[in-house]
């Protein structure tokens, strides 16, 4: 399956970014083959609605699941509408996208059962 991980860099070795809407980029991994690509998050520069934009972007990439640390309410709803699984990274320790991938393959990650925070406001 295709898994998107919010990261702060350009490779699978880049640090994980716990924010979804304002993550620098997404690492899209094919969990079967291990092939990965990195895509800049267009929501990063949005003046409002970053989460919505990031969620649509991830849906457009064909991701079936996302791993992040925090989902705003609009990002959560948009991902849910797109039938994308919303997973939470284990713990909040600093780690790399590759560690997240390993954790995903080692066992089921917890699913976010709602927005993790009240959203940010701008505009």
């Amino acid at each position: 399956m295709k898994l998107a991980i919010s990261i702060a860099g350009q490779t699978l070795d880049s640090p994980f970014d716990a924010r979804f809407g304002r993550a620098a980029s997404f690492c899209l991994v094919d969990t079967d083959s291990g092939a990965w690509t990195v895509h800049a998050n267009p929501g990063l520069s949005a003046s409002g609605g970053a989460g919505v934009q990031a969620a649509q972007f991830v849906a457009g990439l064909g991701a079936q699941a996302v791993v992040s640390g925090a989902y705003g309410p609009k990002a959560y709803d948009t991902l849910a509408a797109a039938n994308i699984q919303r997973l939470l990274a284990p713990g909040d320790a600093a780690c790399r996208a590759a560690d997240i991938l390993a954790a995903f393959q080692a066992g089921p990650l917890a699913e976010a059962d709602g927005a993790t925070h009240g959203g940010h406001h701008g505009g």
């Binding site: 409002g48 919505v52 649509q56 609009k74």
Partner: peptide
């Protein structure tokens, strides 16, 4: 609609269109 909205108040994902009134 989602493409023209500058405020990301509409999202189209799969077979759903979401409207966020507060954006």
């Amino acid at each position: 609609c989602a493409e023209v909205c500058q405020f990301h108040a509409i999202a189209v994902v799969g077979q759903k269109t979401l409207v966020f009134d507060d954006l």
